[in-house]
Design a protein around this nucleic acid. Sequence first.
DNA 1: CTGTATCCGTGTTGATACTG
DNA 2: CAGTATCAACACGGATACAG
Lengths: 230, 230
Amino acid sequence: MELENVTDEATPAPRRRYDDACGTALALEFVGERRALLIIRELLLGPRRFGELRAGLRGLSANVLTQRLQSLEASGVLTRETLPPPANVQVYALTPWGKEAEPIVMALGRWALRSPAHDPSRPFSPVSLMLALRMMLLPDRARGFTATIGFRMGKEGYTAQIDKDRVLLDRSALDRADAVLTGDPNAFLPALFGTTPLPDLVARGRVTVDGDLALATEFCTFFALPPKIG
Amino acid sequence: MELENVTDEATPAPRRRYDDACGTALALEFVGERRALLIIRELLLGPRRFGELRAGLRGLSANVLTQRLQSLEASGVLTRETLPPPANVQVYALTPWGKEAEPIVMALGRWALRSPAHDPSRPFSPVSLMLALRMMLLPDRARGFTATIGFRMGKEGYTAQIDKDRVLLDRSALDRADAVLTGDPNAFLPALFGTTPLPDLVARGRVTVDGDLALATEFCTFFALPPKIG
DNA sequence: CTGTATCCGTGTTGATACTG
DNA sequence: CAGTATCAACACGGATACAG
């Protein structure tokens, strides 16, 4: 049947596009490619450099990261900015609209963590650990807590505060923290999301705490993984 | 079989897996493949058959749909059920956990609709139109409205009711509706999300209304697209 | 009609090597 | 450190053909 296979009507049929007016489908055209949402996750706590992104998303090769950054920039999700001298380095930052994707990242995380397939022994990036605090907060338990807790993981430092049912996160303000926990991201998990008291982790040398250990220990009880399905 | 293909070293190298403890990354392993979330969208209002899914997701080939259904079933997102005789047909239904993915679909849609790239002239599936009602409800405007409005699009029928800031959707309960709108999904848009009064659409023959036209017209004013970015 | 299997052209992904 | 180039493996979608 060599009959030419005329393309249905006028549409040139852009093959890899969902031809769908639904907002969800449009969103997937923006952020539906592999790892795109994880790149956004890594940017949710502030601008990052190319190499930092690669570090937070192990296994992502440079060429794919380049492609994603270009396509996310074209969509208006992020911008590429050059810091003024003497820094003079390039960083990638979410646009205001890009930051509004945070509820998507959170909804995905909260949902998937109910699966028994979740394996917290895999590595956490520093950003994803901090976002997990926001994701897993038990507001009733944390209410009224006013101290600032710092986390130092390798070169990265963050502070967390409780503000009305929400966790405020800030990069590199460790000097204002009432207590600073230092360690590998995964080392904190038993205290934050399990039942191990923070001092036990300190005793085992997995974590060190500078400042008010009692405050830090209390802070660690404000979080819990969601109940598993079934 | 030439065995060759020795897996690199200790790591069986699950190449296409994100090796990440973050819940967001895990979610993307479940629903991050192309169209997976759109399949979930099509199932959010009730079980569907293979062919119905293909109809709602034009351009999805049968082989890929088979793969997705298998992988979503393996993840526990949906189940394949055989209706009892005489129907005796197979349908795909979300599990309770799968239904909990609705906030993800909604968050994606609400976010993307703020982009100027959104083109409502593309086709809507009946399901996505009904979900758009839930997504775009202006609760303050709808409060107190108690009537039931039906929508008939081809063979598919749905009813919508307002229930405390939320739109209740039901399939095939048109007989209990106070007014039923009939037409193509896209034909409703000017009245639902634009400023065209419903009677104008009726006058132009794009939509027909059975029952209380005044109630239906009022219902159509309860929705609006989110403000564009910029 | 429902679903699966197979071939094929093309686009996407990721490992490695390479350039400024 | 920041990215590009190249290449092999795989995923996607169209078009079948085929089983119940």
